[in-house]
Simulated assay, not measured.
Amino acid sequence: MTGNLRLGLRLAALASALMGALLIHGLWRLFRIPSPWPRRFLGLVARIVGARVRVIGTPLRRDVVLLANHLSWIDILAIAGATGSAFVAKGELRGVPLVGWLCTLNHTLFVSREDRLQVTAQIARLRDAIGGGRPVTIFPEGTTGDGRTLLPFKAALLAALDPPPPGVRVQPVRIDYGAATADLAWVGEEPGQHHALRVLRRRGTFPVTLHLLAPFDPVETGNRKAIAAAARSAIVAAA
């Protein structure tokens, strides 16, 4: 099968999955029932693009911030499907056709690092989301890496945990693509659409292992710099 044929089949499968998920999601919303379908749809998208997700460890389901290393947009699909987590994303993603709307369905929190006037309000919204029950995932590297070297964690991205909302735990997550890491890591200046097309044309499947590491109490750990250091150390130790 050629790469372009695989691309066409996967795009068709994604379109069918989207239409089906939106229909069922709409029915759940019509009856005012909390809908699991954004999470299930993202998990299905991960499978369609070739990911075979394996979870090691037990994810906390509420009152938790997941701090994960970051390799690709596939990370979001895998974590959302496995945990039901919402995410913190760059503000410009909101304006991307379809993608931005799908992000809002999964309760994505959009932040803008350039808009310093809104920093306080953004931190307050993030604290509310963290204390709202569902998991929230932050990628504290602030960008994607090559999967071999863990970048420094930016403590500024953890401002909502300094101090943390009452009862919230932090759970580090190590994402591992195994032998497919070099193919799938999104690094350098490669445009997002080029990376996505490359993944969709790729032959076969690939593993995505989510190592859900031991959660810790951020209050006992210290300020956001100490939290970032503790989470990073746990992910490094799990490699």
Rank of each mutant, 00 (worst) to 15 (best):
K154H: 15
S85K: 03
G50W: 12
A237E: 09
R202G: 06
V219T: 15
V187R: 14
T137L: 00
L5W: 07
Y177C: 05
L9K: 10
Q118S: 13
L161M: 07
V65R: 03
L18R: 09
A121R: 11
G145N: 09
Q118A: 15
K90D: 05
V168N: 02
P38Y: 05
D146P: 04
I235K: 02
S35A: 01
A160Q: 06
I56P: 02
L27R: 04
G50R: 11
G26I: 08
A68D: 05
W73M: 09
V64A: 13
F216P: 01
L117W: 11
G50Y: 08
K154F: 07
I235Q: 01
F153K: 10
K90I: 05
I33D: 04
W28M: 10
P34Y: 02
G43R: 01
A214T: 15
T108Y: 08
A196T: 06
R198F: 06
K90A: 07
L42T: 00
R6M: 12
D63H: 11
G222D: 12
A230L: 04
G26T: 09
G204E: 10
G43V: 04
N106D: 05
T58C: 09
L66V: 01
L67W: 01
L14D: 13
P215C: 06
Y177F: 15
R94C: 08
N106C: 07
G142Y: 12
V168M: 03
G142E: 12
G147Y: 01
A155T: 05
D63N: 15
V136T: 03
H25F: 02
T58F: 06
L98W: 09
A230F: 07
L77E: 10
G26S: 12
L27V: 07
G145Y: 01
P36Y: 00
L102A: 11
H107W: 09
P172W: 00
L212F: 15
A124T: 02
A46W: 05
I130A: 02
A156C: 02
A179L: 02
L161C: 03
R61I: 05
L7G: 10
P152D: 08
E220A: 15
P191I: 04
G50K: 12
R198G: 15
P38T: 04
I123K: 03
R127Y: 03
S72H: 05
G204Y: 05
